[in-house]
């Protein structure tokens, strides 16, 4: 479970999702992949605060697009001003071209459409990790 030395289970994830149930479900999926270092934030603002105070504790962000107070794209834009390379996997319920173009131009490393399976999440994480290593 590694890609160029990066092992999935060694990922340090910040999971940003406003719905508690969804957050718990993704956390469970990540745990199934052997990932143990999972931090959670209910919205973009809290996520930014976490990044400010505990930057070294994470190496990937998994973030929902639609959230109150600060959505995923806004969080990503703010993150990119301080860290252009942090892998960022956007979770989206939208599959339309405009949304995906917007996410890509904002600098996402990857995106995953809801509803997704554990296999899809693993595949997407592997892609993001591969890109992280390749960069």
């Amino acid at each position: 479970m590694s890609s160029g030395g990066v092992v999935l289970k060694d990922l340090k994830v910040l999971l940003v999702e406003d719905q508690t149930e969804a957050r718990a479900m993704i956390r469970n999926m990540l745990a199934e992949l052997g990932i143990t270092q999972i931090f959670e934030a209910p919205d973009g603002k809290e996520a930014l605060q976490f990044i400010d105070s505990a930057y070294e504790f994470i190496n990937i962000i998994i973030c929902d697009w639609n959230m109150p107070s600060m959505n995923g794209v806004e969080l990503l834009r703010q993150l990119r001003t301080v860290d252009p390379d942090m892998p960022f996997l956007m979770i989206t319920g939208r599959g339309d071209l405009e949304s995906i173009v917007e996410a890509k131009t904002s600098g996402v490393t990857g995106y995953i459409k809801k509803p997704f399976s554990a296999a899809q999440l693993e595949a997407k994480l592997r892609i993001v990790v591969h890109r992280m290593v390749a960069a």
Binding site: A22, M25, K114
Partner: peptide
């Protein structure tokens, strides 16, 4: 889709 993701996830759990 959002709701289904949650339902499906918890069923798996």
């Amino acid at each position: 889709n959002n709701i289904l993701s949650i339902v499906d996830g918890y069923i798996r759990m």
